[in-house]
Design a protein around this nucleic acid. Structure first.
Lengths: 187, 187
DNA sequence: GTCTATAATATGATAGAC
DNA sequence: GTCTATCATATTATAGAC
């Protein structure tokens, strides 16, 4: 039997763009409808539970992208640790459009978002920690060191996104990603 | 002539709490009214321009607190650099309730917030940079080093707030503030 | 699967009494 | 300066035609 029809990638991309830019409360159905090119009733056909289900679809969409373009790269044993790091960082840049697009975790983690999606956000962050930690181990870091650097990487990424946007200076994001690289290249 | 009557501190504290927790779009007038104990019409009496003006009052309120409890400490020439650092960091902990309350910059910097308050946020962050930089200079850091550490401090604070909340682990915020201290105590 | 039309409610905001 | 009452609009959501 044929697999369940895949949700239109363009719709998901548009949904993601809106939620990342405006947050959960700020993303109105009108704006989502305009961005996707679908009318509100059509959105409810695809996402019967409404806005909440749309945001969940965004989490799934981004989770998939991150799994395929970041986690799988960081864990790819066909590549040297250096290559994993370089490609992984490049793809992180891409995920955040060089620092100009916000993180889904950040956009959807105000009070209402945490109530609805707190578990997803927590699990998602733990996955990032896990994969960064494994990268550290591949670089011969101690368990503790690898764990510590993983947390630091998350803090750096989240913080540099906020500060870059606030100051209107994307070079802070770029600089921060280089700092993350140097965390593995030397110590 | 008597100075303009000061806005009730309790109202401002309640406003601040709501906007920090829910963001600009997420903070409804109903919730603001409940939190302040004022009816909507009374809020409009105090803030004729409505929600936008309430958010601006929050910026002013937090700016004042930060000026009086952080910037003025970091710049207090009656204290040693070490004392300024220690007290300043303690007050930063207090500002964010040990990592459990979000930053106003973060809460009000989604798309709509940036359109309305982008300049305030940029100026506010620049003030933080300025005062951290001066602290670095007081610690005999080079101009470049002091500047770099100032940016790093902002990134660390913003990032650790997001990651602490996302992971549900406030120790990350605490640890990060210690890291900031060590940025000055040794290098 | 998408649409028009519409409903029910929430939201930001105002008028006017006290 | 605060309140009750109200308004216009926006918002989430649904019904039912095509």
């Amino acid at each position: 039997m044929r697999p369940q029809k895949v949700l239109d990638d363009d719709v998901l991309a548009a949904l993601t763009k809106v939620f990342r830019a405006k947050g959960y409360e700020g993303a109105s159905l009108k704006e989502i409808a305009d961005a996707t090119g679908l009318k509100k009733a059509s959105l409810y056909h695809r996402f019967p539970d409404g806005k909440k289900e749309m945001a969940e679809a965004v989490f799934n969409y981004v989770d998939d992208w991150v799994e395929n373009n970041i986690f799988s790269v960081l864990a790819n044993e066909n590549l040297s640790p250096e290559e994993r790091l370089d490609i992984g960082i490049e793809n992180i840049k891409q995920l955040y459009s060089n620092g100009s697009e916000s993180c889904v975790f950040r956009a959807l983690s105000m009070k209402i978002g945490m109530e609805l999606f707190g578990n997803r956000i927590q699990n998602g962050m733990q996955m990032w920690l896990l994969h960064f930690k494994r990268l550290g181990l591949a670089f011969q870091q101690s368990d503790q060191e690898a764990e510590h650097n993983a947390i630091q990487n998350l803090v750096d990424i989240q913080g540099s996104l906020i500060v870059s946007e606030g100051l209107g200076d994307l070079s802070i994001f770029q600089f921060t990603l280089n700092k993350i690289k140097n965390r593995y290249r030397k110590d």
